[in-house]
Amino acid sequence: MPIILDKVSHVYGQDTAMAVTALKNVSLVIPDGQFIGLIGHTGSGKSTLVQHLNGLMKATSGSIYFNGEDIDAEGFDKKMLRSKVGLVFQYPEHQLFETDVFADVCFGPKNLGLSKKEVELRAYEALKLVGLEDAYFYQSPFDLSGGQKRRVAIAGVLAMKPEVLVLDEPTAGLDPKGRDEILDQISRLKKETGMTVILVSHSMDDVAKYVERIIVMNKGSVMYDDAPREVFRHYQELEQIGLAAPQVTYIMKDLQDHGYDVSDEATTIEKAKEEIKSWFARLSAVGKGR
């Protein structure tokens, strides 16, 4: 189910002296099945934006269409919207409250008024999707490690069977191991379910490896919206707004600046390695030719 944002703006504290514009005329199309990175530093409006997607926040002006329907129209089923556009907040483990993991994951589908059997089936599937082992199902969620808790929380949203999954900073506060595990898991479940995934982050390094499209937010507006490679070309502009391209970009750029005939398009180690190898091959071919 595609989501369309048409000139969406959001002003906090409108009609007061302290009005702050968090979103300015944002227009976006989010088609089915895309893997999107939404990047911006703190205060860029990215968190505000995602809360519009499932109707938790109401646009001050502009419209949002889910599957062609205006979500602010009278009689639009917000509950349905929230189950279809699953939003995982930052530090989602802070929302856990049940006595055991399984019961907590059941909370979402239960709210949808499904049968007990269906609720449990969905909870089970969701926990499998995030890769949590059965042994943890009946433990208290508070006894789990940070990374595991976060998986449980993500499962809590997945159990509603959303078609769009939005994750706000899913790696915040995790160590590198936990971070890689969560990101790999998300990428795997994207492949398995084919759902649309929007990854909100302030780290280019995190998303570069996974997503096919990057939306860069700055001061409430969309600054870039393109394939990662294209976006990272603007690494100087990105730096000015407190973001950075993946470190590899800088390495390659530095080589290029010093007269090395390499392309600066590589955004991952793997690609950079290939680029340098092929450059060496070219060099040695020239060398041998001489």
Binding site: P176, I251, I269, K273, I276
Partner: peptide
């Protein structure tokens, strides 16, 4: 140990493995 390594270190390491 699943710890991060600076990417430049990692790239150098990968290339060394390839015989550089």
């Amino acid at each position: 140990l699943r710890l991060d390594v600076p990417q430049v270190t990692l790239l150098a390491h990968e290339l060394r493995k390839e015989g550089f």
